[in-house]
Design a protein around this nucleic acid. Sequence first.
DNA 1: AGCACGCCGACT
DNA 2: GTCGGCGTGCTC
Length: 666
Amino acid sequence: MLFFMYANVLFPLKLPPLTYRIPDGMPIDIEGFIVKAPLGRQGAYGVVTEVLGSAPEGLQGLRELDECRGLYAGRSYLSLIRWLSQYYLTAEGLALKACFFDDFIKSAVAEPKRKRRGPRPDACLPCMELPAASGRLAGLMSEISSKLSTNKYSTSLVTLARTSEDARLVSDLFEMQQDMRNVIIAVPEIDRMNRILGCLSAKFGSRVCGLHSRLTPAKRADAVKRILSGESDIVVGTRSAVLAPMQSVSLIIVNQEQSRSYKAQEGLRYNARDVAVMRGYISKSPVILTSVAPSLESVSNCATGKYTFIGSSGRDVSSFDFPDRSGRPVIRIARLTKKSREQSCFSSDTIKKAKDVMKAKEAMLFLINRKGYSLIRCDDCGSTLDCKRCGVPLVFHKAGSAAKCSLCGAEEKAAVSCPECSGFNLAPSGIGLERVKEEIDSICSTRAVVLQKPAGRKKNPDDDIKPDEDEQESEVAAFCVGTAHAVRRIDEGFLNTAVFVSAESMLSMPDFRARERALQEIMQSVELVKPGGTVIIQSYRPDDRFLKAVRSYDLRSFYADELAERMALGYPPYSNIILFSIDAASGSREIERTVDEIATEVCDEYKRGITFYGPVQVASGRGSRMQFFMKARDSVRLHKAAESAVRRLELIKNLRFTVDVDPLKI
DNA sequence: AGCACGCCGACT
DNA sequence: GTCGGCGTGCTC
């Protein structure tokens, strides 16, 4: 009798699983195993997602698997891959690819081209000194620890007074639970990783393994091999660490869960924090999120009971226990007036402080989120000089006296007259880095340093900072000017004073997360200021509720206010968003028709509660993209609609588009 | 990802 | 007339 079994095989390619016949003599129970299968002209390695008793209808003459190698991952890891592809609306194969499949094949299965020893292990990282455990954190340890011993899924949010407490928390956990195995620790940046890696390596040796995107391919493959073999069961790494191919997981820690670098901006656009939570759920293990200023999403999840807010008895935000910030730097709001703006970017308060700090030979940082000197505004009609292609205001750069578009990089020699009203009274307006530096230099007769990009070298997909060609590294000096990114270059407690030159430039961003981001930026800067130092926030509206809450470190009322606002406007976390972006240099009829169909048929506001926004053309680099998004309270319905939209868009030949689930900005 | 197939520009 | 560019499509 002839009785065949079949296997669905997933390849790390943009393909759905393909079906093969399992040849005689090959074991049947091979779910999760790595197999070599004929694919196209060559063969390829893939993983068996499912074993079938009969061939799917309509498929005959299926080819046989070539060979079966070891186990790649258990059932729960396969569920994670499936969830990734469903939630982020990507081919399952691409989810597999994101899960280090190619690295493993390269190191463990494919024949090595030459006999080579594995990559040289990294020099031992020093065990950095940990901050003393604060009384509060010590008090929370038993509650955190009780979550671990249960071996059940739970997600807990731990708020910290300082980022550096992350390493303390991790170290203390390992101290309390001596037998912890299969742990994933995610950190937002590579240099933070080294601190934790150092602490753990000293104690656990090769059981600890670092994983980040700046590893060389050989080192990455070696790390993956060690993880899969079980040699390393403690993985510390950036975003992709939450995808580490461990057979089982018993604890996941996501440090600084609010960090935007956890969200992938290309390929599989996952958010590592959300993946960690789902992975914990799938593998029945606890998840611990830490933050000095948690995301609204996580705070809201604590309020609904989805997560636990460690250290709080109730679920109401008003009962949430944020760290005591007494002894932290004073936050002062400095009033700017319209009148003073014409002469200076600074309030008199700020100027006085700058002179004092100068005299005391201490360090001071000025933060402003715009490069260049200023915008250019016409005094006659009030309009700004905008980029002809992108429509955003051009930024005037004093060096070269050119106006540059921050989106497309187009440069224009400074115009003489206003294109709107032909008036000749064009004047600098608004504040940029160069202008701030110029003014500090003249006030304090110093040479302030403009901090450029962080110390990173190569392009790094785990990093959300785009490298700019025209930027060079600069030394951190006593008086520095920089954008929010620059704060990464400065050590904890280095500054006497940090100045946010314009609260309005942070708060008036056309983004519903502007306040949340501002809070996080301010809290980050606070850590750079030594105890007894000062943070100054300059504002035209010093009585703003947000600034009042920030000034007194009143995170509770910040979250209460912000949640109320988001709820009133129906923004996340009270709704979900999926953003579509179509590479459409040619806005063809067919595209327009399909998008129109999606807007009317797929997103039925009244019947299904899904709201469609757009489409809008946006300029991006060279070329233009068409964007639209859908928003709904019900995530399941939203995903169904988005799936249907994806299917329709896929019918259009030659169309390239990306789907971003839970985008950071819209 | 490979590796086909396929349809336009400069060559012996 | 052909060689070859890589743009688009398929792989159970």
